[in-house]
């Protein structure tokens, strides 16, 4: 029982990182119907900014986190401006290929800067508390707390502010919203910035938990977070959070009871089965196709 509880804590930690990345996919998808395949690599850039800030500048943790989020937000909005906006009216698949290309470019750009995996110094002092046999570390608590706080901030922005209202409007009908005087380009740019900032924050939290960063770390994490977004129903903000925690839970529970090499096999088999039963994810509704 204690073992299961301990693993649940680990699952919360991994799940909150997945959920943060998945939010970036889902935000962009809900307004542009486009999968930003470079998002996993934005997560990786967040990890590297964290590494650089902690190693060379020795900034405190809070500043590092904000710096990483700021850098990735600029990166996300920049990618949108330079690579995706000119393709908004092009066939959808060219935008997808462009996103893949941007992702590969980011990987190799970082690879050129740092050819080796880098060790991230400890950003927070790790303390372990024992709660009746259950050991809780301060890093674990910090990761989950920061992730949940960021999710609440995002939820507030989307549900309670004018910007969020514009975002929700664009996701329903971009043309009509533009006619009502909403600066569509600005809203889309800021959506990319928010999504990328969450990805960057996930990169920092990831390097808190697993303190090694390498240029390819975004590939598998990105695809898995994408799966989390699809699991929950892509385009649904709460679905992405749900999918992220679900994926984290399944992964941790599989590694807890089976050899760890079976992790990917089980996770992807479960995903396939879920998609057969619910082809549109847990919270997603099948869209009516009009002829």
């Amino acid at each position: 029982m204690l073992y299961v509880l301990q693993q649940t804590l680990n699952a919360l930690q991994l799940g909150s990182i997945y959920a943060l990345i998945a939010l970036g996919y889902t935000l962009v998808y809900s307004i542009l119907r486009m999968i930003n395949f470079a998002h996993g690599d934005i997560f990786m850039v967040g990890g590297f900014v964290c590494f650089a800030a902690a190693t060379y500048l020795q900034l405190p943790f809070a500043v590092t986190l904000l710096l990483a989020m700021g850098c990735t937000a600029i990166l996300g909005a920049g990618l949108e401006r330079l690579a995706y906006r000119p393709l908004r009216d092009a066939p959808r698949v060219s935008a997808v290929i462009t996103a893949l290309g941007c992702g590969i470019f980011l990987e190799h750009f970082v690879l050129w800067l740092s050819p080796y995996p880098q060790h991230v110094p400890a950003l927070l002092q790790n303390q372990t508390w024992s709660l009746g046999g259950l050991s809780v570390s301060s890093i674990q608590t910090a990761i989950v707390a920061i992730a949940v706080a960021l999710m609440l901030v995002l939820d507030f922005i989307v549900q309670r502010t004018m910007l969020g209202l514009a975002m929700r409007g664009i996701s329903m009908d971009m043309k009509a919203v533009a006619l009502m005087g909403v600066p569509v380009d600005l809203v889309i740019s800021s959506t990319f910035a928010f999504g990328a900032a969450l990805g960057g924050a996930a990169g920092v939290l990831y390097s808190l938990a697993y303190p090694v960063v390498d240029p390819y770390m975004g590939v598998l994490m990105g695809w898995k977070a994408f799966i989390a977004a699809v699991l929950g129903g892509i385009g649904h903000i709460r679905g992405a959070v749900l999918g992220g925690f679900l994926l984290g839970a399944v992964e941790i529970l599989v590694t807890a009871f089976l050899p760890s090499t079976y992790r990917d096999l089980t996770v992807f088999t479960l995903l396939l089965m879920l998609l057969i039963v619910r082809p549109h994810g847990i919270l997603g509704r099948p869209t009516l196709q009009k002829v």
């Binding site: 999968i35 695809w223 994408f226 799966i227 699809v230 892509i234 090499t261 079976y262 990917d264 096999l265 992807f268 088999t269 995903l271 396939l272 998609l275 057969i276 082809p279 549109h280």
Partner: peptide, 25 residues
């Protein structure tokens, strides 16, 4: 037959990962 578009992309991705993990095991 049941899934199309982005969801079918995920199905093929899951298939790829299953093949790779199976071969690894």
């Amino acid at each position: 037959f049941k899934t199309r578009g982005d969801y079918l992309a995920i199905v093929t991705l899951a298939f790829l990962m299953i093949v790779k993990s199976t071969l690894e095991n």
